[in-house]
Amino acid sequence: MDFFSKAARKSPWLYRINAGSCNGCDVELATTACIPRYDVERLGCQYCGSPKHADIVLITGPLTARVKDKVLRVYNEIPDPKVTVAVGICPISGGVFRESYAIEGPIDRYLPVDVNVPGCPPRPQAIIEGIAKAIEIWAKRA
């Protein structure tokens, strides 16, 4: 087991939750993984499809009232320890949707956030910079 936890420290798996985002940030997240020009997997991480496998969770969107319970349910499926990254100004402050009746965010009202990556959307390099910060935290926490 020791071998596995040592390896896990070096290769966290990323998981993406869309909390009502306009899709701008999600496109940039896909870009960081799918386009060789950015290639986030050089950092030793990769996207996974199940919250049960995730180590670092990237959340986009302002947490709309409609999606709130579902987001929290998926988030609680992710095993501890985990590192949470808020991508885009939507989860950080609400952004252009701030103070709307349909918004429950900012997301740190409900979840413990570790790293913020502002921008609307942030460019792929900025997301990679945020993920690099998250990996540092992950190495200490895992």
């Binding site: 100004i89 950080i92 402050s93 609400g94 952004g95 252009v96 701030r98 740190d108 413990p112 956030v113 570790d114 790293v115 913020n116 990556v117 502002p118 921008g119 609307c120 942030p122 460019r123 390099q125 900025a126 910079e129 945020g130 910060k133």
Partner: peptide, 29 residues
């Protein structure tokens, strides 16, 4: 909460407010 739309820079009569190309904005909570 800035969306980098550039409206402020566009409408500022004296160009006192501008958008730089600094994007290193990620930070800890």
């Amino acid at each position: 909460t800035c969306i980098s739309c550039g409206l402020c820079a566009h409408y500022c009569p004296t160009k006192a407010i501008k958008l730089s190309n600094d994007w290193h904005l990620s930070h800890l909570q």
